[in-house]
Design a protein around this nucleic acid. Sequence first.
DNA 1: CTGAAAGCGCTTACAG
DNA 2: CTGAAAGCGCTTACAG
Lengths: 330, 330
Amino acid sequence: MVTIREVAAQAGVSIGTVSRFLNGKQLKKENMENIEKAIKELGYEENIIAKGLKNNKSLSIGVLVNSLTDIFATSIVSHLENHLEENNYSIILSDYQNDNKRLEKKLEFMKSRSVDGVVIFHLEENLPILTKMKEQKIAIVAVDAPIKNLKVDTVLVDNYQASFKAVDTLFELGHNKIGVIAGQTGRYIGNERLNGYIDSMKQKGIYNKEFIEIADYTRQSGYMKTKELLKNQKITAIYSTNYYMTLGAVQAIQEANLSIPQDISIIGFDHFELVDIIQPKLTVIEQPIEKMGEMIGKLILEQIKNEFENRYTTVELETNLLLRDSVKKI
Amino acid sequence: MVTIREVAAQAGVSIGTVSRFLNGKQLKKENMENIEKAIKELGYEENIIAKGLKNNKSLSIGVLVNSLTDIFATSIVSHLENHLEENNYSIILSDYQNDNKRLEKKLEFMKSRSVDGVVIFHLEENLPILTKMKEQKIAIVAVDAPIKNLKVDTVLVDNYQASFKAVDTLFELGHNKIGVIAGQTGRYIGNERLNGYIDSMKQKGIYNKEFIEIADYTRQSGYMKTKELLKNQKITAIYSTNYYMTLGAVQAIQEANLSIPQDISIIGFDHFELVDIIQPKLTVIEQPIEKMGEMIGKLILEQIKNEFENRYTTVELETNLLLRDSVKKI
DNA sequence: CTGAAAGCGCTTACAG
DNA sequence: CTGAAAGCGCTTACAG
C-alpha cells in the first residue's frame, strides 16, 4: 500500500504538504504539479480509515432497519445511499428484527466503529445508548416514527391525513360501511393510521367499531383479519393500512369468491411493484420514498456539518392517493 | 471518549498491558482485575477504527448488490449479516444498478475504506480493480455467478440442474409442450437455466424452439413474453425462470382468462413470501437462501483468517423443487 | 508477565 | 506556502 510518505518523498515535499494538497489547500504551483505526478506514478489512494482517526470521523453512517427484506425500508435506503455516496459517505447496514435489545447491541457495535451518524427506522422508545450517542455528537435521524423523549431529526409521512383521505375517497363514492385492517395500536404508525380512519368515519357519522380489525402488518394477519371482516355482511369497502396486509387482504377476498371492486372496494397502503400484479389495479396510498431517502441524507449531513446547533427538525411528508380500479361508486 | 490510556492510568499499568488484556492475553490476576474494574468505572469502549489501523484491518466487509430492493439479494445479505456480526464484522452495503462502471467506483470506495473483503452479486466480467484487490489480499466472494478469468471463492446454485428437473417434473405429469420464459442469454444464470431446460427437453425428444421466449428478469418482461407464448396454442405448461417474471407470467395467464392448472401448468423460480399470494399455490424452485448467506460468510472469514493460501472454492448448492398446486397431470 | 517505544497513515497547530 | 513534530487510539516486537 502506497502512503502519503512515499508520495512526499517522490515529490520532494513533506508529508504535511501532501496532506494539505489532498485536502484541497492551495500550494505553490510547482509543488502541486509534482505531488499530482507522484500520486499518479505511484498509484496512491487515500486511506479513509487513517484519515478519520485524528478527528474521529469515519465517513460512515449506520442504518438500522427492522428487516433487510422490508421493501419499504430498503427502497428508502437505496435512495439514501445514493445521496450519501455523492458526499463520500458509506452506509453500514444492519437489521434488528423488531428487537430493541438487538438494536441496542447493533448501535453499540456501530458506535465502536465511529459512525458519524445513525438512521433508525421504526423506533419509538428511547434507548440509553441513543442519549450517549447524542452526547458524543453522533448524528441521529429517526425514520417513520418519532422517538419518545429524544430530540432528534425525524422524517415521516402524514399517516393520519393519509387515512383520513382514504375514507373521504370511499365515502364520496357512496360507501359508508368501510372496514379497516389496522396495524398494532399502541405503536405510532398503527395509531396514526387508525385514528385518521376513525376520525374521518366519525366526521361523516358512519363510525362503527365493528368495522375495525387489528392485525400486525404481516400478510398472514391481513389475510386472517380480512376474513373476519368479510363475515360482517354490511362491509362494502376495505381500507388496508400497509403493503403486506393488503396482499393478504386481496387473497382473502379472492378466496371468498368476491370480486374487486364489484363486490367490495379496497384501498391499500404503499405502492411497490408487486401490488401491480393484482387484478384489478389497486387504489393505493403512495409514500414519497425517494424524497424520504433524500431528506434523511440531507438532515444527517447537515447535522454533521453544522455541528449540532441544537436545532431539531421533524419533516412530515405528504402521501399521494393513487386512484385506480379497485374502488367503485355504489 | 475514554481511551486505553486513561484505563491504564486508573489501573496502574501500561497501555500495552491494557491492550493485551483487551485482546484476551493472560495477565497477572491482580492486573486483570484492576483493568476490568477501570474499564467498568470509566465506561471504556474500544475504538475499532484505531484498532484496525496498525494491521490494516477494518473488520468490515463490502457487499455489492445490483439492487437493494432485490428480494433474492437482500434475503441472502440478511443471513450473511447475522453470520458476520457474530464474528464482529460489519457490512458496508451498496448497490450498483447493473452498471459495471458504477460497481468499479463503489469497489474503489470500499477499498479506500480498507474493507477486509467484498461480496459481489451477479458479476460475470473481471474488473481491473478486482485484480488489484486480490493483490492487496482483500478477500473476495462471488455470488450467484462465477467471475470470468478471476480465481475467487464462489457461491451459487445448480441452475442447470434445477431447470432440468423442472422439465422432468412436468414431463412426468404428461406435459410435452412446455414453454419457457428465460432470462437474457449471454449471461451466466440465463444460460444455465435455459440450457438445463433445452437439454432436458431434448433428452425427452420434445424440444421445440418455438417454446422458448427470452425475457429480462423483470415482471413486465415476464408478462409480455408469456402473452407471446400463450399465442402458441400447443403449450400446456410454462416454466418461468425467476421470481419477478413468474409474477408477470401469472398475471398474463390470468388476463388471458386461463386458469392454473386446469388450462395451463406453471413452475416458477424462487420462493419468496409474495408468490404465495397467488392462487393456486405455485410450484416453485426454491433456492437455499439461508445456506447461501452462511456459506458466503464462512468463505470470506476463512479467506481472511487463513491468509489466502491460494485455495479457491466454488460451492454449488442444490435447489429444491417445491411441488404444489400449479401443476396438473394431463 | 510487563513496560517503553516505535509505528499504523494521516492531520494540524506552530513557527518560520 | 511549508517543514518538523506531536498526536489520533491502538498494537506489537523488544528487552527484561
